[in-house]
Simulated assay, not measured.
Amino acid sequence: MYEMIKKLPTHLEIKHTSRKSHTTTHMILDFYPPAASAFCKFKAISTTPLNSRLNGTSPNNYCPFYNLISGSGLTQAEGYKEICNSAMCSSKESATCITKGYVTASKMLILCKGLQKVTVEHRTRIAMGKVKVLVDALCASMERKFHRMEYNTVLSETAILDPRFKKLAITENRAVDEALQRITAAAARSSQSSPLPRGQEGEEAAEPEQEEPQASAVWRFFEERATGESTRNPIADAMLEVRSYLEEPLFQRIADPLSWWETKCSVYPRLTQTGSTSQSGGHWFF
């Protein structure tokens, strides 16, 4: 939990309290004039109480800062640069920050289904009457709310496009098939809507094409076959790309799915373009 202690135009003081250990970290951010008008520069200092360090409950000083900056989306901003090393912050090397600690759309199916299963498992161990009634009501409510959750367009597609989960996040085969059909269709549309490599809109594009010489027309069929242009099918290409993506091994669960897509954007250009924005215009994974 973050709490603002002091706020000035060029100075911020923030207290972070760990929900797990209840230890505190005092953070200071000083802002400096940037080298260019389009940039912002600041220096951060993090300290913990002496008694926390002595009894071994002190949190990692680096993570509260990094999680705050990462959660704001600043680490994804163009030109973002962090200058930090073990000499400046000795706790960075041992830091295991959860940069995606907030719930993302791609996790929702797994979290909701997991919560439902855990609640059902514990219901059999409850003997107290009032508690049992409450748990029964909770199970019934989750059954109603989560019944067709896997058919939700955004949740199913984001889960499949998350390289950490893919099809394993969905238990119903029909929901998987429908989501894959939508993803494949969107990938095919993205390739069709891409600008053509030659030709421009306007007067030049409107000019009538010159009649092709007969010899060139004869060879055209062979050239189209050799280059694959005559049999190019956006749907088929999208299906091959989706199939290849699904055959990739799962990414580590604690890793950042966006970093995976950054390294694979040239391998799966259609899926990268499809998964970059949701139907509402935001990132799929946020």
Score class of each variant (00 low, 15 high):
residue 76 Q to C: 08
residue 135 V to K: 04
residue 178 E to Y: 03
residue 120 V to N: 10
residue 67 N to K: 07
residue 10 T to F: 15
residue 156 S to Y: 10
residue 177 D to T: 07
residue 93 E to G: 05
residue 105 A to C: 09
residue 128 M to K: 11
residue 92 K to E: 10
residue 232 R to T: 05
residue 6 K to E: 15
residue 99 T to W: 07
residue 22 H to V: 00
residue 38 A to M: 08
residue 155 L to S: 01
residue 12 L to W: 06
residue 45 I to F: 11
residue 162 D to L: 03
residue 20 K to V: 15
residue 144 R to Q: 14
residue 117 K to R: 15
residue 282 G to C: 10
residue 223 E to I: 08
residue 18 S to M: 05
residue 250 L to R: 04
residue 43 K to W: 06
residue 161 L to W: 06
residue 60 N to V: 03
residue 206 A to M: 01
residue 210 Q to H: 07
residue 254 I to V: 08
residue 6 K to C: 09
residue 101 G to R: 04
residue 151 Y to C: 12
residue 55 N to C: 05
residue 138 L to K: 00
residue 168 L to I: 02
residue 190 S to Y: 12
residue 133 V to S: 14
residue 220 R to Y: 11
residue 129 G to W: 11
residue 218 V to Q: 10
residue 42 F to I: 02
residue 147 H to N: 03
residue 57 T to H: 13
residue 245 Y to R: 02
residue 120 V to I: 06
residue 207 E to Q: 15
residue 78 E to K: 02
residue 283 H to D: 14
residue 171 T to A: 11
residue 169 A to G: 14
residue 111 L to V: 01
residue 133 V to F: 07
residue 105 A to T: 08
residue 204 E to H: 10
residue 118 V to W: 13
residue 229 E to D: 12
residue 211 E to L: 10
residue 40 C to I: 14
residue 20 K to S: 15
residue 269 P to R: 00
residue 51 N to P: 03
residue 218 V to M: 14
residue 96 T to F: 14
residue 33 P to D: 05
residue 154 V to A: 15
residue 158 T to V: 00
residue 135 V to E: 12
residue 157 E to K: 02
residue 209 E to G: 00
residue 196 L to Q: 07
residue 115 L to M: 05
residue 43 K to C: 01
residue 29 L to S: 06
residue 119 T to E: 08
